[in-house]
Amino acid sequence: MTAHLTAAEQRTRPAGVAVSDLTVAFPAGGRELPAVSHVSLDLTPGKITGLVGESGSGKSTLALALMNAVPKPGLVTSGSVHIDGIGNVLSLTGSGLRRVRGPGIGYVFQASQNSLNPLKTVGKQLLDLGRSHGEKNLRGLLRRARELIEDMGLDAVRVLSSYQHELSGGMRQRVGIVFALLLNAQVLVLDEPTTALDMLSQASVLEIIKRVHRDLGLTTLVISHDLGVVGELADRTVVMYAGRVVEEGETQGILRDPRHPYTRGLLAAMPRITGDLELARALPGRPPDLLTIPRAGCVFRERCPLAMPVCADSEPPDTLSGGRRFACFAAAGSAGATSAGHAETEAAS
């Protein structure tokens, strides 16, 4: 419906994304192993949402599902991904999907520093992207690319005529963002945008993400294993563990008062630049992979300092309390909040 709006109009109205009850499973040995299990999640329009999780938490699978691009043999077994102005992405196929990827959602892949074609200049690849989406106005496309590149503090002429190896890691990451935004995406998804970058490049890429997010009026999802990156960048934070959302809420609130023991553990395991180092605590155990995710009960209980008998029997339901959502029996008990019934306004819009 909104396809008739011009790009400029779209930009004034950021699109929201609503994921509900999403399950993505990978078949193995006759079973279906869920990498993402019954995840419901809203990306608030115009805000930066941070998605934190370790390897195997399903965060990248979830992000790919936003584009209906779950790699085979993965299969979406339940749920929907609704994007304003597009509808349920998971029901799209073929050319419908093509119109979503790029013009709808801009995606910056993990290790996108290495995802450029080494044999073509950046400019040629940008033109290829435009042509493959049937863009007629290639001159306009290049102009937009130039603007975006200059926005990121790079020399556009030089970048467009460069090959991959002539750019540093931080520069390539910026080029990856240019690719994602070239077709006027309203939703920007960045998968581990700063992994493999050093601190300085990371800081400048984070600054750039903040800037393009604000200037272009995007709805942004930043996926990272690093609570620091999300803490620096995101308005809202979602913590994933073993395919589940274990905690969600405003970033500052989560950092100040994490409710779920996993979030607490992650925060405590960060070496900090100030304060007493002896307060840092390692999390015991290791993150589970698809095969070792506990099949019944809470997925975190084996590493949890607060585990109770009930944790082994049933999966903790979502508890809503003060704009926060978390899935933990122990935390729910101490918060005094009730599950289900306490239907607070989770996300205002």
Partner: peptide, 10 residues
């Protein structure tokens, strides 16, 4: 030391 996972589910 914190033993990192002993032998569970393997």
């Amino acid at each position: 030391l914190l033993p990192e996972e002993a032998g569970a589910a393997t």
